[in-house]
Simulated scan of single mutants.
Amino acid sequence: MTASPRVLKGPRVLKGHGTENDFVVLPDPDGTVWPEDRLDAATVRRLCDRRAGLGGDGVLRLVRSVHVPDAPAVLGEALGSCEWFMDHRNADGSYAEMCGNGIRLFLHALVAEGLLERSACEAGVLVGTRGGPRRVGAVPGGGYWVDMGPAREFGHGTARLDGRSFAGRAVSMGNPHLAALTDVDVDTLDLTGAPEFDPALFPDGVNVELVNVLEPAAHVRLRVFERGVGETRSCGTGACAAAYAALAAEDRTEGTVVVDVPGGRLAVQVDPRTTVLTGPAVLVSAGVLCPEWLGA
């Protein structure tokens, strides 16, 4: 007689990605499973470890804003309008302000968990982030859009990588970016090491985008090195910064740019008021964290 399989008990966990920018997703609506003192930097690093953990570019905790200690400070008057908060950590355990790929996956996971109705999300749902409130919605037929807020240029800088210098625009999307347009084929660059940058311009570090323009102000291809993570297959805020830089290079302040990343394709609509990112979100698996791993 075959023994019945053992039912494992432990905290539920999901794994998913947006254009292959992948995340460990922790459902914690009431803030009781992963309070701040449990989801510390060491635990985040273990979860994101691609050999000894689940693997990911970061961790997203699905939690109501009222259970996040720093939510009032980062959301201000918008706190009451943001039921949900994207508690986002980079793979190194540090806090992250915002992630365009992550927030699409965040909404997709809320829908999959039965915490929101997809049909009710098409007009957009306000979600709290450490970069401020962001409106994210479902696209009929699949995919999600995110109102990322305006791109704000705050200077020019240079990234030094692979023995070369790449001049770019410093752009804030709630987090800092250096978007460098280059004629060097980005596929030939070595992004295994962190690019050098001006710490006076970027005191909190920076995400560096190396961008090839395929069609001026309309289509670009990029690779990105994200602070606290390394090279990733995609970066939503980086795609927005790259689209802004591609338009600015043509003296334009608005337009829609197709952005190809190693993990797929995104669309970015830019105007002086805001930036809207559209792309897919996919859940790969769901399960539990085993007691033997948690106790190790």
Rank of each mutant, 00 (worst) to 15 (best):
residue 160 R to T: 15
residue 38 R to F: 05
residue 195 P to D: 03
residue 129 T to V: 07
residue 103 I to F: 01
residue 129 T to N: 02
residue 20 E to R: 14
residue 168 G to E: 00
residue 31 G to W: 05
residue 221 R to I: 13
residue 90 N to A: 01
residue 214 L to P: 09
residue 159 A to F: 04
residue 44 V to H: 03
residue 192 T to E: 05
residue 288 V to G: 02
residue 282 V to N: 13
residue 272 P to L: 08
residue 114 G to E: 12
residue 159 A to V: 06
residue 195 P to N: 05
residue 219 H to P: 10
residue 2 T to F: 13
residue 89 R to I: 09
residue 103 I to H: 02
residue 77 E to M: 10
residue 188 T to G: 09
residue 225 F to K: 00
residue 175 N to P: 08
residue 20 E to Q: 15
residue 286 A to G: 11
residue 37 D to I: 06
residue 96 A to F: 13
residue 256 T to N: 01
residue 126 L to H: 07
residue 13 V to F: 13
residue 104 R to L: 06
residue 162 D to M: 00
residue 261 V to M: 10
residue 107 L to R: 01
residue 129 T to M: 03
residue 62 L to Y: 12
residue 22 D to E: 06
residue 246 A to Y: 14
residue 40 D to C: 10
residue 7 V to L: 09
residue 122 E to I: 14
residue 45 R to F: 15
residue 21 N to M: 15
residue 280 P to T: 15
residue 9 K to W: 05
residue 39 L to N: 01
residue 91 A to K: 08
residue 227 R to F: 12
residue 29 P to A: 03
residue 98 M to W: 14
residue 280 P to N: 06
residue 243 A to P: 11
residue 251 D to G: 08
residue 46 R to H: 09
residue 208 V to C: 02
residue 4 S to F: 10
residue 259 V to R: 03
residue 229 V to P: 00
residue 114 G to S: 08
residue 135 R to S: 01
residue 218 A to M: 08
residue 225 F to C: 04
residue 253 T to A: 01
residue 266 L to I: 13
residue 265 R to S: 05
residue 173 M to G: 00
residue 255 G to E: 10
residue 48 C to P: 06
residue 16 G to K: 07
residue 241 A to L: 11
residue 84 W to Q: 02
residue 74 V to S: 05
residue 232 T to Y: 05
residue 78 A to F: 15
residue 189 L to G: 00
residue 95 Y to M: 03
residue 263 G to H: 14
residue 212 N to S: 04
residue 173 M to A: 01
residue 166 F to E: 01
residue 164 R to N: 10
residue 120 A to W: 12
residue 98 M to R: 07
residue 20 E to P: 02
residue 204 D to H: 14
residue 131 G to N: 02
residue 217 A to V: 14
residue 261 V to I: 14
residue 43 T to E: 09
residue 86 M to Q: 04
residue 42 A to S: 07
residue 18 G to A: 13
residue 251 D to K: 00
residue 71 A to K: 00
residue 260 D to K: 04
residue 267 A to C: 09
residue 198 D to M: 11
residue 238 G to W: 06
residue 124 G to T: 15
residue 245 A to V: 15
residue 96 A to E: 02
residue 215 E to A: 15
residue 74 V to E: 10
residue 32 T to S: 07
residue 81 S to F: 15
residue 184 V to R: 01
residue 143 G to D: 09
residue 75 L to W: 08
residue 142 G to Q: 07
residue 69 P to V: 15
residue 86 M to I: 05
residue 295 G to E: 10
residue 234 S to R: 03
residue 157 G to W: 11
residue 144 Y to G: 03
residue 175 N to L: 05
residue 285 S to I: 14
residue 172 S to L: 07
residue 232 T to I: 07
residue 161 L to Q: 12
residue 152 R to E: 13
residue 63 V to T: 06
residue 138 A to P: 00
residue 65 S to K: 00
residue 76 G to F: 07
residue 232 T to V: 10
residue 294 L to Y: 01
residue 17 H to Y: 13
residue 157 G to Y: 03
residue 6 R to D: 03
residue 257 V to F: 04
residue 201 L to V: 02
residue 260 D to F: 02
residue 36 E to I: 15
residue 188 T to C: 02
residue 93 G to I: 08
residue 115 L to E: 12
residue 290 C to D: 14
residue 209 E to I: 08
residue 40 D to T: 11
residue 4 S to L: 10
residue 38 R to H: 00
residue 291 P to I: 10
residue 189 L to P: 07
residue 198 D to A: 12
residue 180 A to I: 14
residue 45 R to S: 01
residue 6 R to N: 02
residue 70 D to M: 12
residue 254 E to S: 05
residue 118 R to L: 10
residue 200 A to K: 08
residue 268 V to C: 03
residue 146 V to D: 00
